[in-house]
Structure formats: structure tokens, C-alpha cells
Design a protein around this nucleic acid. Structure first.
Lengths: 240, 240
DNA sequence: ATAGGATTAAAACAGTTGTTTGAATTTCTC
DNA sequence: GAGAAATTCAAACAACTGTTTTAATCCTAT
């Protein structure tokens, strides 16, 4: 209508249906997973024609990647920026593990907090994408995370100079695992919450609890592996 | 041939194709996920007719549940038995957290170690099932795990009497999350391992490293949440 | 107003999906 | 060895999949 308005913010601007498709896809991929979500379902929910999906994105896989990129890209970029700022604030002293972990968590927390930008839905979708067997998803996530992970790994390495690099790799892996699993959230959470309901708590509180838990594991002294090994071995051999 | 042999152990006994179907399904579900794995693929790999799948299991979903039950049921049962024995050995003193964690990990470790019984394949499939959005999978896993989780929760509660029950629920949730994510294994692991390769290490070594990490988080002193909250809030408000 | 590019629409494409059917076959029991 | 039950087989079922095509429509800059 109004020719001077270059782009209406929400309604039917030029690339409005593309955005509506992303929103619908985000919700449905989260709910049913990638394979089980059909393009017809997505386009119907978005109020768009079926062909619009392939017109705007080229393929279903590319559409899925676009859904992830839209929020994942800014979040990981923010993580690195936050880490940079924390380091410059405390320079030349090395940054503590708790602050590094904060730089990793806070952008995710901000995403979880803001429902206008996808809210918890996207984080659940992300957690599920982490465990999806589809090769194109694995490849995509690897590329998306590689730089950010490397950046944080060197930061942790400075904070924990006595920890062997291999042990650090492991602990970082465990952290990313617990984080993504916690964000995915619906499954094992429900298993436990049926006994002691914490369903009313949202992802934000969950992250605030997860951080101290992981911090303890990250900064734990190097375990005497021979002890652990001995216990495991003797018990495993018992039933053989 | 031999009428006295009630059931040949491996080859073409009465329920041999059923077992072959389970083996093929286990491998393919692990590789491609539930939705992306077709019954035609499974039956072809098992050298069976397509209709055999529905004949023996009734439906694809029931077949998937059978794949999981075959190994998950004994593993969880073994976990509880192991915990019982540990407790009776140290009675009346309460069991330490490290021993309780061992009872949780050792059966999984034994499964990972024995390739004849599925090996690492099944544990990866299990980790993926944990994150699968399909409602029937979530319901199934909840039922399978409910008793075992409850049993371990009371054990941990005895070992950590000062820890509020709600905090314990959280930490137990984190443990199950890190465990299942670690067992699923292929994705984020590869992200990090490309920087510092630990691809040569198998699930067994991974579990031996995970246990001390989680033990530290589990036995950590109750964090001063106001501290964590303050840091998070100030940083989140910064960009608003 | 109008040409021209961007977007939408309806329809059909070629495959694949899980499931069912009814007859052929094997396997086991008496 | 005959009869009955369990299992295998090939074929077809209807429904759904992602993608492509062709024509109609919208929007915008000339």
C-alpha cells in the first residue's frame, strides 16, 4: 500500500513468507524431527504454497540448515565476542574457568529467555540436531561449531595449564554434551521429573544449575585412573 | 536335521530370522535413525522377506522397541542388581557416590566391551533414541528407565544427605544427559576430535574419563546461586 | 501505464513408505 | 508319513514423500 515503507516489519513484506516458513519449520522440526516433518506440513502451517519451500531454499536440507543458521550463527559469534571482552577486561591475567563457562552459557541463556527470537524451541531443536544421524546435519554442525570450540579450548587451556590437553578435550566434550542434552531437554528430564517434578522450571534455571555442576567437573584434579580402572576391571571380570 | 537338538544356537532355528531382523535393524537404526530407516532396507540386510518384519513384530515401531528392549532390559536390571550387591557389601554404612556411579556405568561398559552382544553400536543407538522426538520412543524409554532411576536416586540421596532433593534431581539429570550423549558419541565428539584427535579411543576409555568428571560435579558443594545469578543477569541485561 | 522480474499457485512427477493379503512352503507334532 | 501350525513369499494396497513444471499473479522501477 504505502510505497514509501521499504519493508513492513512483520506482515507481508517481500521476504515475509520466507520468514514465516522458517518459523513454521523451526517449530515443526523441533516437534517431529527432520525426517518425520514433511514440506507439506511446514508450508501449510506457514500459510504458503508447497512450491514456496523449494523456491526459497532449494531443498528441504537447505531449509533445515537455514533454520539452524538463523539463530546459531549469531549465538556462536556472540559467544566468541563475549569471551574476547572478558579476556581483555582481565588481561594480562588469564581468565578463570567460571568466566569462560559464562561466555559459553550466557548467549544460550539469552536465546532461551527471549521468546520473540525463538526461545526454548530453537534450543531444543538444536539439542536434537546434535544427536541426529543424518550426515548433512553432522557436517553442517561441525562447520558451524569448529571455530567457536577451538577458541574456547585455547581459553580453557590457559586457565588450566596443568591439565593435559587430551584430558581437556575430554572434559570439553563432556561439557558440550551435557549442555546440548540439557537444552534438548524433554526426554530424560521427564523421566526424572515424574518422581520429583521440576517441570515448572524453565531452561534458564536449568542452565544456572548446570554451570556449577560442570565447573566442578572441569576443575577437578586429575583423577588417579589406575584406581578407577581397577574397580571397573574387577567388576567386569566378575561376570565373565 | 537332528531332531534331538531343541534349538540350534545361531543358524536357522525357529526364531532365527527374528534375531537376524533385530541385528540388521539395530545396525541400520543406529546408522540412519528411526524415520530414515525403511523396513525394506532392514529385511534386505537380514536376508528376509519384507512381510517378515510385520509378521514377527507387528509394526515398525514395535520392532524398534524390540531392538531396544533386547539389550536395555538386561542392562538396567544388571545396574540395579549391582547396586544392591554393593550396598549389601558395605552395609550398614551408606554407599559412596563413586561406587553408586560405578553401578551405573559398569553394565554400560560391559555392553560396550562385548561386540558379540551389540557392542558400541547399540549404545550409540540408545543415545540417539534419547534425543528422538517421536512420542512413542519417549514413552517407551520413560517406562524402561523409571524404576532404575528411582532406585539410584534414593541411593544417591543416602550418600549425599546434605544435598537438597531438588538439587540432586538436577545433578542426576545432568549425569544421565552426559552419559547418554557420550554414548551416542559420533557428533560433537568429531567436532573436537578434529582438533585433537581422540577418535582412536573407544567408548570404554571414554566412560573411564567421564566417571571422575561427573563424580566431581555430583559431589560439589552447593553453589551460591546468588553469585551465578548476579553474573548472568548483569551480562544478559547488558545487551538488552 | 507498462515492461520485467520476483513471487505464488495448481498440478503432476517418479519414488518410496508401512502394511495387508492369500497362496505356497516349511517345520513340527502326533 | 499325515495333519496342523508356523513361517515365508510375491504382489498389490493406498498414502505420502521431495521436487519440478507451467501458468498465473504480484510488485516495482521505468
Amino acid at each position: 500500500m504505502d510505497a514509501t515503507a521499504v519493508a513492513l516489519p512483520e506482515l507481508r513484506g517481500a521476504a515475509a513468507t520466507k520468514e514465516r516458513l522458517l518459523d513454521a519449520a523451526e517449530a515443526l522440526f523441533m516437534e517431529h524431527g527432520f525426517e518425520a516433518t514433511s514440506l507439506r506440513l511446514i508450508t501449510a502451517k506457514a500459510g504458503a504454497n508447497l512450491a514456496a519451500a523449494n523456491y526459497h531454499f532449494g531443498s528441504k536440507e537447505a531449509m533445515f540448515e537455514a533454520v539452524l543458521t538463523r539463530r546459531l550463527d549469531p549465538m556462536n559469534q556472540e559467544r566468541v565476542e563475549l569471551l574476547d571482552r572478558f579476556e581483555s577486561e582481565t588481561a594480562p591475567a588469564p581468565l578463570g574457568c567460571d568466566r569462560i563457562l559464562s561466555a559459553l552459557f550466557i548467549p544460550a541463556l539469552r536465546l532461551a529467555r527471549d521468546p520473540a527470537v525463538g526461545g526454548n524451541n530453537f534450543l531444543r531443536l538444536l539439542g536434537r540436531a546434535y544427536a541426529d544421524p543424518a550426515p548433512f546435519i553432522r557436517r553442517f554442525l561441525s562447520e558451524q561449531y569448529a571455530q567457536m570450540i577451538a577458541r574456547f579450548k585455547t581459553a580453557f587451556g590457559r586457565a588450566l595449564p596443568h591439565l593435559p590437553r587430551k584430558e581437556l578435550s575430554w572434559r570439553l566434550h563432556f561439557i558440550m554434551g551435557a549442555l546440548s542434552y540439557t537444552l534438548a531437554g524433554t526426554d530424560a528430564l521427564k523421566i526424572i521429573s515424574e518422581l520429583n517434578p521440576l517441570a515448572t522450571d524453565n531452561d534458564e534455571i536449568l542452565l544456572r544449575r548446570l554451570a556449577p555442576f560442570l565447573l566442578a567437573g572441569l576443575t577437578a584434579p586429575l583423577p588417579d585412573l589406575s584406581d578407577v580402572t581397577r574397580e571397573f576391571d574387577s567388576e567386569i571380570a566378575r561376570r565373565r
